[in-house]
Amino acid sequence: MTDRAAEEPIPGTVLFDGEQAMKGYALNKMCYSFNRRENREAFLADEEAYMDAYGLNDRQKEAVRRRVVLDLIAAGGNIYYLAKFAGMFGLSVQDVGAQQTGMTVEAFKEKLVRAGD
């Protein structure tokens, strides 16, 4: 257990610490590979083979297949690497935010604008 386990949890927030980093290593390593175009193309050409090559576990594979960001985070994904995965499908951080909060993209963007009031 890390020191963070003793800290008060922050609702709706997973702190990416050593425990998450171990759990999500294969998933994050795959997403890190998407910095390169040839890797993005290889993934899109054969998703299952690409996930196998990086050794993703079943939970991670299912979250990738379904493109569900909260599940990817629960499977150890780190948002900075997941952003590269989301980017392949043209999803912005507002799209990702809307998906995680169960809002429409318009409503999520409106919420961001309202934060300035």
């Binding site: 922050i10 609702p11 709706g12 927030t13 997973v14 909260l70 935010g97 995680q100 961001l112 300035g116």
Partner: peptide
């Protein structure tokens, strides 16, 4: 800012 989790979109002016 917060990008991840159900708390995504959090801003504290």
């Amino acid at each position: 800012h917060q990008l991840d989790g159900q708390r995504a979109g959090f801003i504290n002016k």
